[in-house]
Computed example of a mutant assay.
Amino acid sequence: MKAMLWLALMGVMMGAQAGEEDSTPCDNVDTDQQAYACAAFNRQTAERELKTALDELLQRVREQAASPAQASELNAGLQSAQTLWTQLRDADCKLETSRQAPGSKAFVAALDTCLAQRSDDRSEYLQSLAQP
């Protein structure tokens, strides 16, 4: 039950960050099934926003670089850093969810919530880079 409350709370918090959607699975989370759907929705939303943040940063770098060679070098470094960050995020979330039975709905929801949180944090970081 403690896990359900935690998931519902995270769903409400993450749902508020999801944007100006008309209706989301995070509206009125009252059951475990709704909490699981909310966690999945939050992960999908966070990963979509992360991709957008990275794409926008890569574009800013191309626009601000002194030369095409510099842009190419910086973009390669950003792609490498993103790959390493993704590996760290996944390892951290695996560790963080290790108390749950792998494959269970609770495990998937906890993993989705962790990945969403970390992805949101990374999106904010990427958005702060190379600002004009």
Rank of each mutant, 00 (worst) to 15 (best):
Q17A: 14
A18F: 13
A18Y: 08
A18G: 02
E21G: 07
D22Y: 13
D22N: 09
P25E: 01
P25L: 00
P25N: 05
C26N: 05
C26I: 07
C26F: 02
D27F: 01
D27T: 13
N28M: 08
N28S: 12
N28I: 01
V29E: 02
V29I: 15
V29N: 00
D30R: 14
T31D: 08
T31R: 00
T31A: 10
T31V: 11
D32R: 09
D32C: 00
Q33G: 03
A35N: 05
A35V: 06
A35F: 11
Y36H: 11
A37Q: 09
A37T: 00
A37S: 05
C38K: 00
C38G: 00
C38F: 04
A39R: 04
A40L: 01
A40C: 00
F41L: 01
F41R: 00
N42M: 04
N42T: 03
Q44L: 04
Q44F: 01
T45E: 15
T45R: 12
T45S: 01
A46M: 05
A46Y: 04
A46V: 03
A46I: 13
E47H: 08
E47L: 13
R48M: 10
R48P: 02
E49Q: 14
E49C: 02
E49M: 02
E49H: 06
L50G: 06
L50S: 09
K51N: 11
K51P: 03
T52C: 03
T52L: 15
A53F: 12
A53Y: 05
L54W: 14
D55C: 01
E56Y: 07
E56S: 07
L58Q: 14
L58R: 15
L58C: 00
Q59C: 03
V61K: 07
V61H: 05
V61L: 07
R62A: 07
R62K: 06
R62L: 01
R62N: 04
E63Q: 09
Q64D: 14
A65N: 01
A65H: 10
A66Q: 11
A66K: 11
S67L: 12
S67C: 03
S67R: 05
S67H: 04
P68D: 10
P68E: 03
P68A: 13
A69C: 00
Q70Y: 09
Q70L: 15
Q70W: 04
A71H: 02
E73N: 02
E73S: 08
L74N: 09
L74R: 04
N75L: 06
N75Y: 02
N75Q: 10
N75C: 08
A76Y: 07
A76Q: 15
A76V: 09
G77L: 02
L78N: 00
L78V: 06
S80M: 14
S80L: 15
S80Y: 11
A81W: 12
A81S: 14
T83C: 01
T83F: 11
L84T: 15
W85K: 08
W85L: 09
T86F: 05
Q87F: 03
Q87G: 13
L88T: 13
L88V: 15
R89A: 07
D90A: 06
D90F: 10
A91Y: 04
A91R: 12
D92G: 00
D92N: 13
C93D: 08
C93V: 05
C93M: 11
K94F: 09
K94S: 08
K94W: 07
E96M: 13
E96L: 15
T97F: 07
S98V: 12
